[in-house]
Structure formats: structure tokens, C-alpha cells
Design a binder for these strands. Structure first.
Lengths: 219, 219
DNA sequence: TATAATTAAAGATTCGATTATTTTTATAAT
DNA sequence: ATTATAAAAATAATCGAATCTTTAATTATA
């Protein structure tokens, strides 16, 4: 019998991080402890543990005797995040491709297949597919760098990806056909081990995404 | 009158992080809360807040219902950290050099001067200079990337640098003359804006450092 | 009216105690 | 002697209350 029991702290951590990334908690919003206490139904100590952990990742800002605040957003921050994502993800992609095996190719094809399905649904204006697309986009990009053989790199990339995702979700629009083509190219270049073209495609993919996001973001 | 009052939490955070980086708390060591309580003379709640924050940065590992542990070390981890430092620091250096101004040049020269002084003291076998060298080495490298114009990048680099430093301090030995030459080159290439050579020097500098560390590390 | 001082309310910080879980030790059964 | 079971000790997790700080509201003064 499996024991999947998570502590209260772990559950609240996931909830609050989700609420920040998905915009339920707004940028700059002050996180008053007694409000959160009733909202999430936990004690203050638990909340402070969770908020401190999120501080470490930079999703929350802490000011002594002033409390906790959801991290602010800005175009400058968005471009910084995008630049970091490009730097980390292209580097990881190169190593990943160099280390690839059949199992990885299979998993990558699988991840692509799911993403492509969600993309098609979105093209048919099935708006329910939005959250699915979000999930599969993340999984596809995680799979691309999975063989980079560096837990540290994967861990940092994950944080940066979530920060990037937060901006994407603030826009809510979907870049459509262009992005679909880029994902297909990313898959194909990875499978034939063309590192240069795979990296260039990834770089353009993120740059176009961030420009699109930026132009749709009123700040 | 300035208000430099830090909360208890902030102070303990710095102390514990210092103790991890500088090896007073050993890798894999279990951080029992009541022991830490008497050691640092604070309540459990405070400790849990601090340990959670350090989890976010990866200096501490948390296992549900098992407690907190100082992150383990390994050669693989060291090489991952070094690779990340190279990736992040060369990228930041390029942008920094492109954005440079006279003020930065002046500050960089100042930082180099202090580092060079510490290096000379070490050459004279003045072992007290060791901790000074640690400080000035960090400051010199931070100054190199200061103009990269990305708080996110600087913040992440800082965490990686501290993780790298932790390994360096485990070795305690000093690489000597070679490293001195590299620092001088790093300064000169940055000042004449030779980005390629500055990046290559930095890459070699870190690679040689990590190889030196690795070969002196019994794991 | 505008500014400064005082008080009241709200909120952050810290702590000690209670509860729940895990680990260790002791005891019993095979 | 070895494994299984039960009791005890150690430790982690959680909570609610006490303390301290900041912010807002009120009153007093120029």
C-alpha cells in the first residue's frame, strides 16, 4: 500500500505557487497572513514556512516587518526571464541531444504528440484545450532537455519556466500557427541531432513568444 | 538615523547559510530542530522558516516527516555547478562588457586591486589572507557581471557561485600563480572589450578551478 | 486649514505547548 | 538466534496565544 500522504505544508506550498503562476494571486498583492489563514485554512506558522520557501525561488518578495508580497511584473523582468530561459534551455538542449538514446526519442515523440493534439484543439477554437496546452507545452520543453544530465540545470530551468509561464498566462492569448510549426521543427531537428538548428529554432521560438507576450501586456 | 534592524529570522538565515557554505554544517548532516534550537538560540518556528528558505535555493534538502538535511556533495554535482557557472557567467559577462561605462571600469579596477593584494599575500604564505581572498574573489566576479542589466541573472548567479564556493572551501587549497594570471587577463580583456577572449579566459578559469577542486576532493 | 502628537487598530513576529509520526529499544514468539 | 510485535523515546508538524511593529485614525496645536 502506497503512502502518498503529503504534509499540510507541502499541499499549501503547491496551492500557493499555483495561485501565483496562474494569476489567482495578483502581482504586487500583499499576502496578509490572517486573510490567507482563512483562505487556505491553515495556521500562520505553516503559511510563513511556505511563503519563505517561495521567497527562495523568487515568486514572493519579503520585506522585514512589512510582510510578504507577490513578486511584481514588468516588461524588463519578462525580457530577463526570457533571456535566461534561452540561455539555459539552449545549453541544456545541446547536451540533451548529445546524450540521446532511443528511449528519449520515444518519450519526446510522445510528448510532442500530446502537445500537437492540444494545438489542433486550440485551432478549432476549443478553449477548454487551453489548460491542456499549457501542461503539454511545459512537458514537451522539459522532455527536450531531460537528457542534459544535470539536476541542477533542470531544477533552475523549472523555476525560470514557471516564471515565464506566469507571464504567458497573464496574456491568455495563443500565438497559433507560427508556434505549431516551431514545435514541429524543434522535434525534427532534435531527432536528427542537428544541434545548431534545434538551438536556433528554440531561441526564435522563445523570442517570438516573449515579443508577442510583451506587445499584449499593458504595463 | 538609519534603521539597520534585521529580524531574528534574517540573522539566523545568514548564519545558517554561512555555516553550510563554509562547511561548519557538513554535507548530509541531519539538521535536528532541537539541537539547532540550542545552537542558534531561537525557536523552532524561526528555524523552520529559515530552513524552508534555504530549501528554495537548494542548500538544504527536505524530506516529509523526516526533517531537514544539508545538501549532499558529489563530483557530479560539482561539475554540474561549474558548468552552470560557466554558462551563466560567460553570458552575463558578454552583456556586461557591452553595457560598460567609466564608472564600471573604475569599480572593476578597484575590485581587481583588492583581489590582487590578497593574492600577493597568499603567495607570501600569509594564511590569514585566505578568507580575504575568498571575499575579494567573489566581489571581483560579481563586479565583472554587474552591468549585465538583469537582476534575475545576478540573483541566480549568486546562488550558483555560493554553491561553487562551498566546494572550493571544502578543498581549502589555493591554486596559486595560474589563477592570478587568469584574473589579470580577465580584467584586461574586459577593459579592452574583447568579449571572446574574456569569455574564453573565464571558461578556462572555472574549468581549471573545478578540475583542481575535483582532483583534491575525496568522494 | 495644515501639521504634529497621541491613541487605536491591524498586522507581523516570535514563542511554548500540543499533537502526530518516526525511530529506537525492549519484549515476546518462532 | 532470529524475526516479529509492542512499548517507549525522540523528533517532526502544527497550532494558538503573547509580544512587538507598523499603519490608520483621532485629537491637539500652530
Amino acid at each position: 500500500m502506497e503512502n502518498i500522504q503529503l504534509s499540510v505544508t507541502e499541499n499549501i506550498f503547491k496551492k500557493i505557487k499555483y495561485d501565483i503562476v496562474f494569476g489567482n494571486l495578483e502581482p504586487d498583492q500583499k499576502l496578509k497572513l490572517n486573510l490567507l489563514q482563512t483562505e487556505y485554512n491553515v495556521s500562520i506558522s505553516i503559511l510563513r514556512e511556505v511563503l519563505n520557501r517561495l521567497c527562495g525561488d523568487g515568486f514572493i518578495i519579503y520585506k522585514v516587518q512589512k510582510g510578504f508580497f507577490v513578486s511584481p511584473i514588468s516588461k524588463k523582468d519578462l525580457y530577463e526571464i526570457a533571456d535566461l530561459r534561452i540561455t539555459l534551455e539552449t545549453h541544456a538542449l545541446e547536451i540533451s541531444i548529445k546524450n540521446k538514446d532511443y528511449e528519449w526519442e520515444a518519450e519526446l515523440l510522445g510528448a510532442y504528440h500530446k502537445l500537437n493534439h492540444a494545438e489542433n484543439e486550440l485551432e478549432k477554437n476549443n478553449l477548454n484545450a487551453k489548460s491542456l496546452w499549457t501542461k503539454y507545452d511545459a512537458e514537451f520543453h522539459q522532455m527536450l532537455i531531460k537528457k542534459c544530465n544535470s539536476l541542477n540545470l533542470i531544477r533552475i530551468h523549472e523555476v525560470i519556466f514557471d516564471k515565464y509561464l506566469r507571464y504567458q498566462l497573464l496574456i491568455l492569448k495563443y500565438r497559433g500557427k507560427e508556434s505549431i510549426k516551431e514545435h514541429k521543427d524543434l522535434l525534427d531537428y532534435s531527432l536528427i541531432s542537428n544541434i545548431q538548428k534545434a538551438q536556433n529554432t528554440l531561441r526564435d521560438h522563445i523570442k517570438k513568444g516573449v515579443d508577442y507576450a510583451s506587445s499584449n501586456l499593458s504595463l
